[in-house]
C-alpha cells in the first residue's frame, strides 16, 4: 500500500534538493577536476609501461619494485634515501617553525591589542608573494658570492666558490621560511584564547620559568600546535619549488623525484607508484597523528 509522504519527509527531500542546487556545482567541480584525476593517476601505478613510459596492459606491480629501488641494474638505495631525506627536511622545518612560533606568538600577544593584527600581518605577508620569488630570494642571501657565504669563506668553514645554496641547509631554511606562517597562525589562534588564570594559579604555587610555561601555557596551546604541525609538515614533505631552486642534485626530495617521471624521462606507472607511496606516507602520518593528538587531548581542532 502506498503511503502519503509525511510533512517531515517532504521537508527532508526539499532540504536535499536545495543542498544539491547550491552546493552541488562546487562539489561536482572538485570531484571532476581533482578527485577523479587523482584516482586516474593512482590507477596508472598498476599498469606496465611501454618504451615511451606510457601505461599499457597488462596490469603489474613492476612500478612498485622500481619505487623500492629494483631495476635491470639491480637494487639501488637512491629512492629510499630521497624518501628519508624528505622526511628529515620536513621534520626539521616543522621543528624550527614550531620553536620560532612560540616566542613570536607570545611576543605579539604581549603588545597592545591594536598593534597585534599589524604584527601578525607582517608575519603572513611574505607568504602572499609568489613562491618562486620568495624562494629564489634566498639564493641572494645564501648563494655563492652572497653575504652569508662570503662570511663563511672568510671564517674558513666554506670552501671558496661554494655557497650555502644549493644544498640541504638552504632547503631546510627555505622550507621553514615558506611555511612558518602556517604554524604561527593556528598557534596564535589558540594562544589568544589562553586562560591566564591558570598561569596565575601556577605562579601562586611557586612554579616559574619553563616549569610554569610547560604546565600552564603549553597544554592550552597544544590544539594550535597540532594543527600547525599538519599545515607545515604535509606541504613541506611534498614541496617542489624549494628543493628545485635551493637544493641541487644532492638534496633531491620526493616532489622532484615524482615530477621527473612525468617530464624529463617519462615513466608514468613509476611516477604514479611514487605518488601513491607518498600519499600513503602522508595518510599514515595523519592517522598516527590523530591517534596521538586524541591521547594528548584537544583533538577536535587538530582534526582535519
Amino acid at each position: 500500500m502506498k503511503r502519503a509522504k509525511t510533512e517531515v519527509e517532504l521537508e527532508a527531500g526539499r532540504q536535499r534538493r536545495r543542498l544539491m542546487a547550491s552546493s552541488g556545482p562546487g562539489l561536482a567541480w572538485i570531484m571532476l577536476f581533482l578527485i577523479l584525476p587523482s584516482a586516474v593517476l593512482l590507477g596508472i601505478a598498476f599498469f606496465s609501461s611501454d618504451d615511451y613510459g606510457n601505461p599499457v596492459m597488462p596490469l603489474s606491480t613492476q612500478a612498485f619494485g622500481q619505487v623500492a629501488g629494483y631495476s635491470l641494474l639491480g637494487w639501488d638505495p637512491g629512492n629510499i634515501l630521497v624518501f628519508l631525506r624528505s622526511l628529515k627536511q620536513a621534520g626539521i622545518a616543522t621543528l624550527v617553525s614550531a620553536l620560532l612560533s612560540y616566542p613570536l606568538v607570545f611576543f605579539i600577544l604581549s603588545q597592545r591589542p591594536s598593534l597585534r593584527p599589524l604584527l601578525l600581518l607582517f608575519i603572513v605577508l611574505p607568504s602572499w608573494t609568489n613562491q618562486v620569488v620568495r624562494t629564489y630570494a634566498w639564493l641572494e642571501l645564501l648563494g655563492p658570492n652572497a653575504p652569508v657565504s662570503w662570511l663563511g669563506h672568510t671564517l674558513g668553514f666554506l670552501p671558496p666558490d661554494l655557497g650555502m645554496a644549493p644544498g640541504g641547509f638552504a632547503v631546510t631554511t627555505g622550507l621553514a621560511y615558506n611555511y612558518l606562517p602556517y604554524m604561527i597562525v593556528p598557534l596564535y589562534a589558540s594562544a589568544e584564547k589562553l586562560d591566564w588564570t591558570l598561569v596565575e594559579a601556577g605562579r601562586d604555587l611557586y612554579a616559574s620559568g619553563l616549569r610554569l610555561f610547560w604546565h600552564t601555557v603549553f597544554p592550552q596551546t597544544v590544539p594550535g600546535l597540532l594543527s600547525g604541525i599538519i599545515f607545515v609538515a604535509i606541504p613541506a614533505f611534498g614541496d617542489y619549488v624549494v628543493p628545485q631552486l635551493l637544493g641541487g642534485d644532492k638534496a633531491m626530495m620526493i616532489g622532484s623525484l615524482i615530477a621527473n617521471q612525468f617530464t624529463e624521462t617519462p615513466d608514468w606507472p613509476y611516477g604514479a607508484a611514487l605518488t601513491l607511496i607518498m600519499l600513503v606516507f602522508t595518510a599514515a602520518g595523519l592517522v598516527a597523528f590523530r591517534v596521538v593528538s586524541q591521547k594528548v587531548g584537544g583533538a577536535e581542532e587538530a582534526a582535519v
Binding site: L27, I30, L34, L36, P37, S38, L41, I234, F262, L279
Partner: peptide, 23 residues
C-alpha cells in the same frame, strides 16, 4: 561534502599538479 572540500587543501601541490597534467 566535508571530505570533498578538504581534498584540495590537504593534497600536496605536486600530486595535485601531476594529476591534472595526466587527466
Amino acid at each position: 561534502p566535508g571530505l570533498i572540500i578538504y581534498t584540495p587543501i590537504i593534497m600536496p601541490s605536486i600530486v595535485f599538479g601531476i594529476s591534472e597534467l595526466i587527466f
